[in-house]
Simulated scan of single mutants.
Amino acid sequence: MRRLVLLAPAVVLLAGCSATIVTGTAAPSPPSASTAAGAGSLPPDPQPGATEDCPYLGSEFVAESNGQHVSKVRVSADQPHPACFFYRPDGKIQLTVRVYVGDAKTATALVNKAAPLDSSNPASDPSGWKGGYLSSDDGAVYAVAKGSVAVIASTNQKQSVKARTVVKKAIAALKL
């Protein structure tokens, strides 16, 4: 579904071109998130860094909300709003929370990248925030933006309500 949607603009563009014979089997590359979003270049995905507490969420809250014991928390180098990575006992990431504060178009583009409009359900919780949520076999994501702020949670659990609970708590803890 996503590939079809990403290729739709290319098909429309090519429809106006004359026929050209192309040999080979190269697959077209999808447009970058920044191109698709119409915004400038998106910031790179945060990477786990130092082992320390998350400034928005406590490990106990995450364990209760996500239903798994938290064995370690790492934060990205992004300042003043690092992303938080919560690990389960087997060393795999169970939940990630990303906070972006900056340009409103970039905030919206990050939310649309995490929960694409064409494949996610609309989200509007907490009040005044807008975005989307979706679930898959790999887990769930809940992503919302308000003005120049975006908050995105990804969980290894299939229930998006878990990611939503975490996003709402992170938003409440933000000191903007």
Rank of each mutant, 00 (worst) to 15 (best):
K158M: 08
A123K: 09
S124V: 04
K169Q: 15
G128Q: 01
K146V: 02
P126R: 11
A123L: 12
L117A: 12
S119T: 13
G147Y: 07
K158L: 11
V144F: 05
G128S: 04
V151T: 09
V111W: 02
N121F: 04
V166R: 04
A109D: 04
V166K: 03
K105C: 00
V101F: 01
A123M: 09
A140G: 09
I152P: 01
V101W: 02
S148W: 01
A153R: 02
K169D: 08
G132D: 08
A140R: 05
G147D: 14
N156Y: 00
D118G: 00
A143G: 07
T106E: 10
A150F: 09
S148T: 08
A143M: 06
A107Q: 07
Y133K: 07
T165Q: 14
A145T: 13
Q159E: 15
A163P: 07
A114K: 07
Y142V: 10
A150M: 11
V144G: 07
D137G: 10
N156E: 04
D125V: 15
V144N: 07
G128I: 00
S136P: 00
S127G: 12
A143T: 08
T165F: 05
S160A: 15
G131T: 08
W129A: 07
A140W: 04
V111R: 11
P122N: 02
L110I: 04
V161L: 12
A123S: 09
L134P: 00
Y142D: 09
V111P: 02
T108K: 15
A145N: 15
P122E: 00
Y142C: 13
R164D: 10
T106H: 10
G132K: 06
A114P: 04
V167W: 10
G131K: 06
V111F: 02
A115S: 09
G147S: 12
V167G: 08
R164G: 13
T106V: 15
K130D: 13
A114H: 02
V111G: 02
A145L: 05
L110E: 03
I152D: 01
A150D: 10
D137H: 05
T108D: 14
Y142L: 12
G128M: 01
N112E: 12
S119Q: 11
A114F: 03
N156G: 08
